[in-house]
Design a protein around this nucleic acid. Structure first.
Lengths: 127, 127
DNA sequence: TCTAAAGTAGTAATTATTACTACTTACAAT
DNA sequence: ATTGTAAGTAGTAATAATTACTACTTTAGA
């Protein structure tokens, strides 16, 4: 990848956010630093960064994709109440790709897991 | 849910297919039985069937959603080569929602997991 | 410097999905 | 059986998310 300021700013933006932003959220943040950046540029670079393994894409049921800089083994919870994505720290799924590979005849490259439920804050509010 | 022939045919279609079809694939199949069915009707009914727990929706990275009649505990593999979705029979993830619930402060309602990799057939072809 | 490939802004197009509207059907109570 | 009404439908329009296109610009190596 050749250097570009746009990509650098996009990566920094994903890096310093912990709210698992959507492409559009990143676009609006980056607009403050590069006022004429194009939405297409944001999408292209986010996908490029995912392809190069610098960030992760998270699929959300019935909602747009999110991006995450944290590459460490962890999972996500999508709260159906506040629509936020939270990190889940668990070792339960460690090495699951290898396990599945041994159990099946498929080559496993990666996996995507998203739990759907209610976060702590929303849970307290409702009670 | 009130009876409708459209919904019945849509459900039957998902039931007797094992290829995890997209909404559009179901639409085209159902068109043969109900030539004037509307794509919107297919989408509405598929989502309704998901909400009522009669079928499952599967999220695929960078591809459209699929539908599955098999409600039994199983996972999916998305082959990046032939773009097909395969079933994975494994007990590794059995009861994972409860485990995560105990480890965190979240209420887990469900989870979505899709493995990405190469299926048996594609793997053999490439070698 | 010069050059070629990679990258960009701006816009148009595409894809998947949902919303809207007037008409139709299912079904429960008369 | 008839009827009221809520749910469902076709057809169309609209929306949202994402990708493609084009002419211009930047990066980085020769």
């Amino acid at each position: 990848m050749k250097y570009s300021r746009q990509r650098e700013v996009i990566l920094e933006e994903v890096k310093f956010r912990y709210d698992h932003p959507t492409a559009d959220m990143i676009y609006h943040s980056v607009l403050e630093k590069i006022p004429n950046i194009s939405l297409g540029t944001v999408y292209r670079n986010l996908n490029q960064l995912v392809e190069h393994g610098l960030i992760r894409k998270i699929l959300i049921p019935d909602d747009s994709d999110r991006f995450d800089f944290n590459l460490k083994n962890h999972q996500h919870l999508y709260c159906t109440c506040c629509k936020q994505v939270f990190d889940i720290e668990s070792n339960v799924l460690k090495g699951i790709d290898k396990v599945i590979e041994k159990e099946t005849n498929y080559i496993i490259l990666s996996h995507e897991i998203v739990f759907t439920g209610i976060c702590e804050a929303c849970n307290r509010k409702k009670v």
